[in-house]
Design a protein around this nucleic acid. Structure first.
Lengths: 246, 246
DNA sequence: GAGTGGTCTAGACCACGAC
DNA sequence: TCGTGGTCTAGACCACTCT
């Protein structure tokens, strides 16, 4: 394999191949999330390449978010995104006031059902496979602010379906990792505008047809598979998001 | 100066100082937007450093968006953002249908006035300085879709205040560069939701109090100075924005 | 073919963090 | 004090672009 990495292949750099090889070692679990990987010098020696080449390979994985480097300490496998908080799209009362920033979380319902066509495609499942669907309400103090519908594929998240939702953590992604071994690595969020229906409005303590922001998220694990679909609704007038170009 | 770059200064790498030095040459106009800069080897020789060190310095400026590298051709000073189109926040009819994607632009009004406190701060002007304020309507076909209020500081944009707005281009940023020598390098956009007032609604052919997206933009030149404040309003139901985390 | 940036090597020394 | 990543050097050769 090492020999393979050293042969010249047009259109593919050596450090590119090294990055893929090291990525595999992470996906295979040889290097686990949160752990250190061998030192640059050790990697260079074991792969039989120069230090600079290993550094370029590591740089790719760092840019990819798979690795993190800490001067004097070592190179670590990323633990995955924590909250990837939906709160970043909003500005609710109390958040900026330096008050308690931790939103509470309440599971309203939890049920198993057959996957829709969209879900079958997103999760690359077979037709008729099962998913777990959750309804969750997030609140700041006594004010409900976000209403979420969360769908995860079922063989993978079986541990969650079995357990009591009262024992769940407020942050789902770290819990996915602990209970199901799923590390959330990336998310894609699509934002649009809509209006609340009657039941949604009631849960958010707003009027029916109140304007809301709709966040449709796909969350991906380290292998790049989509492992969660989430729909979040919040008061449009609390929406605040900033972005910069270039 | 070159000697200065070679002395060891704790807390500042040599390539960092080189990057600042080269950035200055761009800001001073020695290397103009769109032009090639000297080859890596020439730079390394003239600064008296190794090739790898120059490459690290260039990498910083590339990451910063000031330079662009093209294999086999050379390293170029960025021309600046073109449209930085507000359309990226929306999904209007006709845009996805593969029809004409170029929105038309019409200046509704143009006037000079004293800067507000907010504008004085943003533009770092003296109190009572003058600004140019424009109202602009962007349309797709016959459908008005975005209403903009644009404010620029006046000594700098004097050429614009003098000329007839009928002769203006649809894209403002390239025109800023041609007529006023201002290159837009970065933008900060802040998104929120609001409702249209009567006159805004009339111009967008929507009902008063219709929900709208509010985009508040600050645009910066290559030196990092804020040189434009822009407020854009569009139909909330046409809002569509995607982002990814990690 | 000449000139550019891209890849790679094999060293050296520095700065940071933990023991 | 030791091991880590960060900086820097002085070369070599490859791949792309233009003429």
């Amino acid at each position: 394999m090492t020999a393979q990495l050293l042969t010249h292949t047009p259109g593919q750099s050596r450090y590119g191949k090294l990055a893929l090889a090291m990525r595999d070692r992470i996906l295979q679990g040889e290097w686990a999330p949160g752990e250190v990987i061998p030192a640059e010098s050790a990697l260079a020696q074991s792969y039989g390449v120069a230090l600079g080449t290993i550094r370029q390979a590591l740089a790719l994985l760092v840019e990819d978010g798979v690795l993190q480097r800490r001067h004097g300490r070592g190179t670590f496998v990323t633990k995955g995104v924590d909250g990837a908080s939906m709160m970043r799209f909003f500005r609710f009362r109390g958040v900026d006031d330096g008050q308690s920033e931790a939103p509470e979380s309440r599971i309203l319902s939890s049920r198993m059902r057959s996957a829709s066509t969209q879900e079958v495609n997103a999760f690359t499942m077979v037709k008729g496979a099962q998913v777990l669907q959750l309804e969750r309400l997030r609140s700041l103090g006594n004010d409900p602010c976000l209403l979420e519908t969360i769908v995860v594929p079922l063989p993978l998240f079986g541990k969650l379906a079995e357990s009591d939702s009262d024992s769940w953590d407020d942050l789902l992604y770290p819990m996915y990792q602990q209970r199901c071994g799923v590390v959330i690595q990336k998310t894609h969020d699509s934002l649009s505008f809509s209006q609340l229906n009657a039941t949604q409005a009631k849960r958010l303590k707003l009027a029916p047809a109140h304007p809301c922001v709709l966040v449709e998220r796909q969350a991906f694990d380290m292998a790049g598979r989509c492992v969660e679909l989430r729909t979040t609704r919040g008061d449009a007038f609390s929406f605040k998001y900033t972005t910069q170009l270039q």
